[in-house]
Simulated assay, not measured.
Amino acid sequence: MKLELNIQPLESWIQAKSEPLLIAGPCSAETEEQLVATAHLLAQTGKVTALRAGIWKPRTRPGEFEGIGSIGLEWLKRAKEETGLPTAVEVANAKHVEEALKAGVDILWVGARSTVNPFTVQEIADALKGVDVPVMVKNPVNPDLSLWIGALERINGAGITKLVAIHRGFSSHEKSAFRNEPMWDLAINLKTHAPNLPIICDPSHICGNRELLGYVAQKALDLDMQGLMIESHIDPSVAWTDAKQQVTPAVLVEIIDRLTLRKPELQGAAKDVLAELRTQIDKLDDVVFQKMAERMKIVEKIGNYKKENDITILQVNRWDEILNKRVAYAKALNLSPEFAEKLLELIHSESIRKQTEIMNKGQENQPQEKLTHA
């Protein structure tokens, strides 16, 4: 389902100083000197399009530094006057919106902790009605595409047409090299739902450390994201918040200069080669779906047989056998075991659904429980 969003193309309202579009600045505005000095260094790189800084900082636990507050808006104003860089600030309620707009902030963004709460997003949306200001919406903390889409729809519904999504990764119980798991498939799904929606990436919050920033930034550009938001501090070693994921303006330049910018479409002979390869994929996809349909017909026969003979739908030993054999076979074919397991689980889930439907035929008026495999 395509999202009906009334939005303007990114390039129509913000002009990148260089490619890719880069929004940078400290995680938190700490002192006037720190913010203004950082802004000057970022402006001198010639690569930064807008200056970001946290003024109000929603923290996980009380007692941590929760932002310098409204006084930081005056510092941002000075930084803008001296460097010419547009400014960007996170807002988490109507009061923040009003104060930021009054101070002349150019771009607002809705943070991950706000996106997760529709009440908060609606309050922000209501405060934005009648205002022509760019708004960027970060993905929610938890991996929920509907929450992300809902937040974008609420902001757009308030009349905001300069709208951007920010991919900053998702919270996960699994421990990995990332602070927040990228879960690129969710960002890709959002792009599929809203092809005209600009999406930029926040590698700083995905990584949680400066070592992986270049890797994540390159991955984002390879997925055709239109820009980056990276935290930069004049001296990260003494930063009051998220010190490990911030870089100096000089290091930021090194990261950006190492990135490879790839074209979304090719021309001439190269385009013809790509078209031929895609045709081959299309044909193989057709075969895959044909075989899948044949498989499901056999599943239906199995379901009917189980119903006639009072056999349970779920056969754990059979499922374990399929999983072990097919994953091993996939590995022998140089396919990722993780991919094979996810694919098999999806197929198995559909098989269970079909057999449950057959088992329950004629019992529509009786309460049913959804059966899922372990």
Score class of each variant (00 low, 15 high):
Glu11Gly: 00
Ile14Leu: 15
Gln15Glu: 11
Ala16Asn: 01
Lys17Asn: 08
Ser18Pro: 00
Glu19Ser: 14
Leu21Pro: 01
Leu21Gln: 02
Cys27Arg: 01
Cys27Ile: 06
Cys27Pro: 03
Ser28Val: 13
Val36Thr: 05
Leu41Gly: 00
Lys47Gln: 12
Trp56Asp: 01
Thr60Ser: 11
Phe65Asn: 12
Glu66Phe: 03
Glu74Asp: 15
Ala79Gln: 05
Thr83Gly: 05
Thr83Arg: 08
Leu85Phe: 06
Ala88Ser: 11
Ala100Pro: 09
Arg113Asp: 00
Ile124Val: 14
Gly130Pro: 06
Asp132Glu: 14
Val135Tyr: 01
Lys138Ser: 09
Pro143Ser: 09
Ser146Gln: 15
Trp148Phe: 12
Ile160Asp: 00
His193Lys: 14
His193Asp: 04
Ala194His: 05
Asn196Ile: 04
Pro198Ile: 03
Ile200Thr: 09
Asp202Phe: 04
Ile206Thr: 08
Arg210Ser: 15
Ala217Asn: 06
Lys219Phe: 04
Leu221Gly: 07
Asp224Gln: 11
Glu231Val: 09
Ser232Glu: 06
Asp235Val: 11
Val238Lys: 15
Val238Gly: 06
Val247Pro: 07
Thr248Trp: 12
Pro249Phe: 03
Asp257Met: 02
Arg262Thr: 15
Leu266Phe: 13
Asp272Asn: 04
Asp272Trp: 04
Arg278Thr: 11
Val288Thr: 06
Met296Val: 05
Met296Arg: 13
Val299Cys: 04
Val299Ser: 06
Glu300Met: 05
Ile302Trp: 10
Ile302Glu: 10
Asp320Leu: 14
Lys325His: 14
Lys325Gln: 15
Tyr329Cys: 10
Lys331Ile: 02
Lys331Met: 08
Lys331Gln: 12
Asn334Asp: 14
Pro337Ala: 10
Lys342Gly: 08
Leu343Gln: 14
Leu343Val: 14
Glu345Cys: 10
Met359Trp: 10
Gln368Asn: 11
